[in-house]
Design a binder for these strands. Structure first.
Lengths: 200, 200
DNA sequence: ACAATAATGCACTGCATAGTGCAAGATACT
DNA sequence: AGTATCTTGCACTATGCAGTGCATTATTGT
C-alpha cells in the first residue's frame, strides 16, 4: 500500500459538515457545500462516506463527542452546594452554541432520523438526569430533603434552569447568558428548590 | 363578475397545507403534496398563492389563529387557586399536538423565516407570560408573595410546568400526558413555587 | 524510482420540485 | 342563455441535488 485515506481530510470533512448541518439543517445542506467548506473535492466526500445519510450519521456522532458532560463534577458540601454544583454543570452544558444548534437539529430532524432523538436523550440528557436523581435520593436518605417523586423533582430543578437560560436561545431570541445572569438563575433555582423540599 | 375565488378550496388548501407543513417541515413539503391532500389541482394552489413561501406564511398565520390562548381564564380565590388557574391554561395550551408541531416548526425554520420566531413569541408566549407576571406583581402587592425579580419568577413557574410536560413531547419521546399526570405536575409546580415565594 | 492507492475534476444520469403557459371544462352571476 | 372567471390537467422549463464513472494527478511507503 502506498497511500491510505487522508485522516486529516476525513476530519476536515466531518468538522465542516458539522458546521453546515448545524447551521442549515439536513435538507438544505448539499454535499457540494460540505466539500467546499472542507476545501475538498465533492468526489472525495463520496469516497469516504457512502451517502449523505451516512455522512449525517457520522457527523452527529462526531459532534456528540464534543458535548460529553464533564464527568468530574465536584459534588460535596451541604445540600445547597451539592445542588449548585450539578446545576452549574447543566447550565454549562448548554452554554456552547453548538449544543443549542444540535438540539435544534434533533428537534427538526428527529422525525426523519429517529435514532437521533433517542441517542441524544440516552447519551446527553439521561446521564445528567440520572446523576441528579441519584443525588436527590441520596440527600433524601440523609434527611436533608423530602419529596414524593424524585424524578419529577429532578425535572423541576432542570426546568428552573432551562426555561430562563436555554429557551430563548433555542428560539434564537437571545445570545448566551452572561456569567452574572447564569449565577442569578442558578441561585434562584437552588433556593426555590430547597424552599420546597429542604428540611433544615 | 361571474365567479370568485372558491373560498372553500382556499381554506381546504390552507388546512391541508398546515397538516403537511407541520408534519414534514418546509423543505420536504411539495406543492404537489399539498394539492393532493387538499383534493385540488396543483395549478389552483398557484392561482391562489404567489409561491411556496407565500403559502407557508399564510399557513402559519392560519394555524396561529387556532392556538389563541383562552383569554377567559378565571383567576380568583386564594393565591394557590389563582396560580393554578394560570398554570392550567399554560398546560392546556400545549396539550394540542399541533401546538407542539408548530413549535417544532418554529425552531426548525426560524432561521429561514425570522418573523416566525418573533411572531410566535409575541403572539403566543408573551401574552401568557405578561398575564402571569401581572398576576405575580398583583399578589406581591397584596403581600401574598415575595420575590425580587418577577420575570424570573414567572419563568421559573413556566419551567416547572413545561420541563416535565412539554419537553418529552417536543423530542417525540412521549405522547400527551394524562389528566392525572397534568394535575400532579401542576400541583407540584404551584406548591414548589409557593414554598419559595409564598408569605402565609 | 516505482508502485499502489487516494484525491481531484469533470461529465453524466436520474430524480424531485418550483413555477409557468395554455386550452378546455366547470361554475355562478346577470 | 350568455359571459366572465375560476378550476383543472397537462406539457413544459429550469434548477438543484444525490450519486456514479473515469481518466488524470498527487502522495507516500518500499
Amino acid at each position: 500500500m502506498a497511500r491510505t485515506i487522508d485522516k486529516q481530510k476525513t476530519s476536515a470533512i466531518l468538522s465542516s459538515a458539522a458546521d453546515v448541518f448545524l447551521e442549515r439543517g439536513y435538507e438544505r445542506t448539499s454535499i457540494d457545500l460540505v466539500a467546499q467548506a472542507a476545501g475538498v473535492a465533492r468526489r472525495t466526500v463520496y469516497n469516504q462516506f457512502e451517502s449523505k445519510e451516512a455522512l449525517f450519521s457520522a457527523v452527529t456522532e462526531h459532534v456528540w463527542g464534543q458535548f460529553r458532560l464533564d464527568e468530574a463534577i465536584r459534588v460535596k458540601g451541604d445540600p445547597a452546594e451539592r445542588l449548585t454544583a450539578i446545576a452549574k454543570a447543566i447550565v454549562a452544558f448548554w452554554m456552547d452554541s453548538k449544543a443549542i444548534a444540535f438540539l435544534r437539529l434533533v428537534i427538526a430532524e428527529g422525525d426523519r432520523f429517529p435514532d437521533l432523538a433517542s441517542t441524544f436523550f440516552d447519551s446527553g440528557k439521561q446521564p445528567v438526569f440520572r446523576m441528579l436523581v441519584a443525588e436527590l435520593v441520596h440527600l433524601r436518605k440523609q434527611g436533608a430533603l423530602a419529596f414524593p417523586d424524585e424524578e419529577l423533582a429532578a425535572k423541576q430543578l432542570i426546568g428552573l434552569l432551562n426555561e430562563p437560560l436555554m429557551w430563548p436561545r433555542l428560539l434564537r431570541l437571545d445570545g448566551p447568558p452572561s456569567r452574572k445572569r447564569r449565577a442569578a438563575v442558578i441561585s434562584a433555582a437552588v433556593s426555590t428548590f430547597l424552599a420546597a423540599y429542604g428540611r433544615n
